[in-house]
Simulated assay, not measured.
Amino acid sequence: MIEAKTGATANVIWKDDATVIPLVIRPSHVVGRACTPPPDCRSINRANMKEHKKA
């Protein structure tokens, strides 16, 4: 599980809080021909990761 800055203040994760979002962390956003990611899949590359670390 990856921590997200959602503003949540509780010490526990409730069932209603757990939303699954397909996420890929790779050096590139390019998807190979043989790959079929889910329609709602998101990706983070090196540039995005630097932005997230600053936040």
Score class of each variant (00 low, 15 high):
Trp14Lys: 03
Asn11Asp: 15
Ala18Arg: 00
Met1Cys: 08
Pro22Tyr: 05
Ile25Leu: 15
Val30Thr: 12
Cys41Leu: 09
Val12Phe: 13
Ala8Met: 08
Asn11Arg: 05
Ala18Gln: 01
Asp16Tyr: 01
Met49Lys: 02
Leu23Phe: 11
Ala8Asp: 10
Ala47Phe: 10
Cys35Gln: 10
His29Ile: 02
Lys15Val: 04
Ile44Ala: 07
Asp40Cys: 00
Pro27Gly: 05
His52Tyr: 15
Val12Gly: 02
Arg33Val: 13
Asp40Val: 03
Pro22Thr: 02
Thr19Asp: 08
Asn11Thr: 11
Arg42Val: 14
Ala34Gln: 05
Ser43Glu: 09
Val30Asp: 14
Ala55Tyr: 07
Ala18Phe: 12
Val30Ala: 14
Met49Arg: 01
Ala4Asn: 03
Thr6Pro: 01
Asp16Ala: 06
His29Asp: 08
His29Lys: 10
Pro27Ser: 09
Asp16Lys: 00
Asn48Ile: 02
Arg42Cys: 14
Arg33Gln: 13
Leu23Cys: 11
Pro37Glu: 06
Met1Arg: 00
Met49Ile: 10
Ile2Gln: 05
Pro27Leu: 07
Cys41Thr: 11
Gly32Lys: 06
Asp16Met: 01
Ala55His: 02
Ile13Thr: 04
Cys41His: 02
Val31Trp: 07
Pro38Thr: 10
Thr9Glu: 14
Trp14Glu: 07
Thr36Cys: 04
Trp14Gln: 07
Ile13Gln: 03
Thr9Ser: 15
Asn45Gln: 02
Lys50Ala: 15
Val24Met: 12
His52Gly: 02
Cys41Glu: 07
Trp14Asp: 05
Asp40Leu: 10
Val30Gln: 14
Asp40Lys: 01
Val12Ser: 09
Asp17His: 03
Cys35Met: 11
Ala47Ile: 11
Val31Gly: 00
Lys50Ile: 12
Arg42Phe: 10
Lys15Ile: 05
Glu3Leu: 12
Cys41Val: 09
Val30Trp: 06
Ile25Gly: 05
Glu3Arg: 04
Thr6Arg: 00
Asn45His: 05
Val30His: 09
Asp17Ala: 10
Lys15Pro: 00
Gly32Glu: 13
Glu3Asp: 09
Asp40Phe: 02
Gly32Leu: 12
Glu51Leu: 12
Val20Phe: 13
Lys50Phe: 09
Gly32Ala: 13
Met49Gln: 08
Asp17Pro: 00
Ala18Cys: 08
Asp17Thr: 01
Lys53Asp: 13
Ala34Ser: 12
Ala8Gln: 10
Ala18Met: 11
Ile2Trp: 09
Ala34Pro: 02
Ala4Gln: 03
Arg26Leu: 12
Ala34Phe: 12
Arg33Asn: 13
Ile21Ser: 03
Arg46Ala: 14
Pro22Ala: 10
Pro39Ser: 08
Ser43Cys: 09
Ser28Val: 13
Arg26Cys: 12
Val12Arg: 05
Val24Asp: 07
Asn11Ala: 13
Ile13His: 03
Pro22Trp: 04
Lys54Ile: 05
Lys54Trp: 01
Val31Asp: 08
Thr36Leu: 04
Ala55Trp: 04
Val31Leu: 10
Cys41Gly: 01
Met1Trp: 08
Arg26Thr: 13
Val30Cys: 04
Arg33Pro: 13
Asp16Arg: 00
Lys5Asn: 11
Ala10Val: 07
Pro38Ile: 04
Ile44Ser: 04
Ala18Pro: 01
Cys35Ser: 09
Ile25Thr: 08
Trp14Ser: 06
Asp16Ile: 01
Thr9Phe: 11
Ile44Thr: 06
Trp14Val: 00
Pro38Trp: 09
Trp14Ile: 00
Met1Lys: 00
Ile25Asn: 03
Val20Tyr: 09
